[in-house]
Design a protein around this nucleic acid. Structure first.
Lengths: 106, 106
DNA sequence: CAGTATCCCCGTAGATACTG
DNA sequence: CAGTATCTACGGGGATACTG
């Protein structure tokens, strides 16, 4: 089935938070855990932690850990997720058309 | 937040079956309920019914009902979902890169 | 043929508390 | 600062049975 790579992509960027996290890192460049939590509105440290871990395992973000006190960990986008941005833009345009279809009254 | 149209798109094509259903209708053109169920591997009539209903409400498919005996209902893709195909192809290419990242051993 | 009604399971998301 | 452990809630997805 030819759509299985699409399914694969959806597995990796699906869920409630992942795209929001990627989007936030995109806008901020290198960013730390607590800064990220402040900017991704409403996310708990648990969810952020889980999602960052998965995104890292899927190769979408890079994690840099500095063994300092207090601890410092920085996150940034990988090349893979930067390629994703273009795709998301076209998906966004399509989503906009869906929106217009569903709200013709506005 | 600029990604909300993406979220909107994901809401509409998300879930386990929707892309599979769209893909199947794309390959078959106009198609009937039971034919669709046979070609979308593993789907129950309940799930197919639910998903077709939502896809229709979101403007992705067209439903033609003929009041015959036995009843005949045909489904086909709308223009909206045909525009989606191009986007899905680029998403599929990206998903393929993710796949290559995760399985460098193969 | 083309569905709907009902009940159930399990995985994702979240709240709370705690730690190196 | 940067997380993890534990428990709970909710909803998508599914099995089964039934119908115009």
């Amino acid at each position: 089935m030819e759509d299985c790579y699409v399914r694969y992509a959806m597995d990796v960027i699906g869920g409630k938070w992942k795209l929001l996290i990627i989007w936030t890192i995109l806008q901020n460049g290198v960013i730390r855990f607590n800064d990220l939590q402040r900017k991704v509105d409403g996310i708990s440290s648990l969810m952020l932690s889980k999602n960052l871990k998965e995104l890292k395992e899927d190769g979408l973000i890079l994690r840099h850990q500095y063994n300092e006190i207090p601890p410092r960990v920085e996150y940034e986008l990988s090349e893979l997720s930067q390629k994703l941005i273009v795709v998301l833009q076209s998906l966004s345009e399509w989503g906009c058309e869906v929106y217009k279809y569903k709200k013709p009254s506005i």
